[in-house]
Structures are given as C-alpha cells and as structure tokens.
C-alpha cells in the first residue's frame, strides 16, 4: 500500500516507522515544511495514487484544517484519511472536508513499540466501510484496534495529558520540582514515565493542543491548560525536539 504520513516529531517518525516496517510504500512529510511551496508540491505529486493518508498535526487547529483540506483535494475518492484525534474530534476534522465519510479518527501515544493498540473513533460522518478499512489497515500491521467514542484525545492522550497538565500546575505553584514530581509518580504510583518527561517527549505543543481541544469541547475547568504549559510553548520550549521543555535536553544540532 502507498501511505502518506504528515505530522510532527515524534508522532510522524514513530508512525512512519510502523508503516515502513509493515512494508508499505511510506512517504513522510514534516508538517512545518508544508509552508514551503516546494515541499507542498512534492506532497501533492504523491497524493493521487495513495491508499492511506495519515495526519498527525497537533498544534494549530487552523493549520490542521488547512493540511487535511489539502490532503483530501489531492487524494483519490477511494483513499482513506486517518486523522489524529488528539487536538480535535474526528467529527470536527471530517466537517472540514468535502468527503467526510472517508475520515476515521485515530490515536496513538508515543513512545510506540513495533506493535501495540491503536484507538479508532468514527466521526458522525464516517462510512462503515471506512472504519472497517481503518481497522484492517492497523491489524494487518500487527496492531490491535480498540474502537472508542469520538472526542479529543480519545482515551489515552486525554488521560495522560490531564496528568501532565496537573503536574504542570504543581510545578507552577512551586509544590515541587519537575524532577521530583516525575520521580514521585514513577515510584509512588508506578507510572511508566514521569508525566513531565513524557510531555517533553510528546512535545509540549502537542500536549497543549490536546488540553485546548478538551477545554473547547467540554468547557470544564478540569481541562483548562496550565498557564505554565502555555508559557513554555510560547517561549518555544517544546521539549526534546527543541532541546528544552520542563527539562534541559542535549542541544539539537
């Protein structure tokens, strides 16, 4: 199968790796490069005969919309569009397109293994056939699928980003250092990773995208993004990919 993956680090590279390992003809595009006409042109040339397009863009909703619209215009009518339901519901993503029935929401939460469980969600507009194709696509790559109800973050990113947001609030309030909060959650609650180190890995912009989407969807205080998270993103401290987030990482060349 020919698979187009557009998104940002680490989602792009990790999902891309899964598709490559499964033997698909995989084309990866960094979302931020889509501003360049040349890169855009390169993507456009690959779209018409692609079978699946995977969108993993979590920062700006307007850019996500623009990206999905560009993909759907270049793809054939039979192509499947998998939209990452982290910073928007699948229904919202589908609403932007002329052929919403081909959109299926999905979510993975890095770091990914070679196989794992992918969450799938149907938009209100999703055709039965498209959901079945999405399930088959992941299952053929050796992944388990869990179909859950649509909504930003689906199950895992919603939970983990809320944990991260609460940890960020605790840092902001001076309750403890980021390192001590992470240590506490690993050793006091057996979490696989400290929430703030996890945030640095996912990208603080992606985490903020999930929280903003949850807050917009539900309008509840529990989803209000921590001001610290917002400030770090404003300052360009996005985590590992920019060399600094809650922690200082090795400078990227």
């Amino acid at each position: 199968m020919k698979v187009i993956v557009v998104g940002e680090i680490p989602f792009l590279t990790e999902v891309g790796q899964v598709c490559l390992a499964a033997g698909h003809e995989t084309h990866l595009y960094l979302a931020e490069d889509m501003q360049s006409a040349q890169e855009n042109g390169r993507l456009w040339q690959q779209l018409s005969d692609a079978d699946v397009a995977i969108e993993l863009y979590h920062e700006s909703l307007s850019d996500k919309r623009q990206l999905l619209r560009a993909l759907s215009q270049g793809l054939s009518a039979r192509a499947l569009i998998l939209s990452s339901a982290l910073n928007s519901s699948a229904t919202q993503a589908a609403s932007w397109l002329d052929a919403p029935q081909r959109v299926v929401g999905f979510a993975v939460l890095p770091p990914l293994g070679a196989t794992g469980v992918v969450e799938l969600a149907r938009a209100l507009q999703t055709a039965d056939a498209a959901l079945a194709e999405a399930q088959a696509f992941w299952q053929e790559m050796g992944w388990e699928t869990a179909v859950v109800a649509d909504g930003p973050g689906l199950v895992r990113a919603r939970t983990v980003c809320c944990l991260i947001n609460e940890a960020a609030s605790a840092v902001l309030e001076g309750v403890a250092s980021a390192a001590d909060i992470d240590q506490a959650m690993r050793q006091g609650a057996n979490y696989p990773r400290g929430p703030l180190a996890w945030a640095d890995y996912l990208g603080l912009d992606a985490v903020l995208g999930v929280m903003q989407a949850l807050f917009a969807e539900w309008g509840e205080d529990r989803y209000r993004p921590s001001p610290l998270l917002r400030r770090l993103v404003m300052a360009g401290r996005l985590g590992e990919k920019s060399g600094i987030g809650f922690y200082v990482h090795k400078a990227k060349p």
Binding site: V155, R158, T159, C162, L163, N165, E166, A167, A170, E173, G174, V175, A176, S177, D180, I181, Q183, A184, M185, G188, A189, P195, R222
Partner: peptide
Amino acid sequence: VFCKDTPAFIVNRVARPFYGEALRM
C-alpha cells in the same frame, strides 16, 4: 522527594485525573 505543604502533596494530587478521567469516560 521534596514537596511544599499543599493539599494532597504530589502523588495523591497529580494522580487525580488517572481516576477522574476514567470515571468521566
């Protein structure tokens, strides 16, 4: 780990969404 005197300290506070979001979902 060193923690300021605030309600629920670190673990019991930061872990709230693990239960809260699951129950809401």
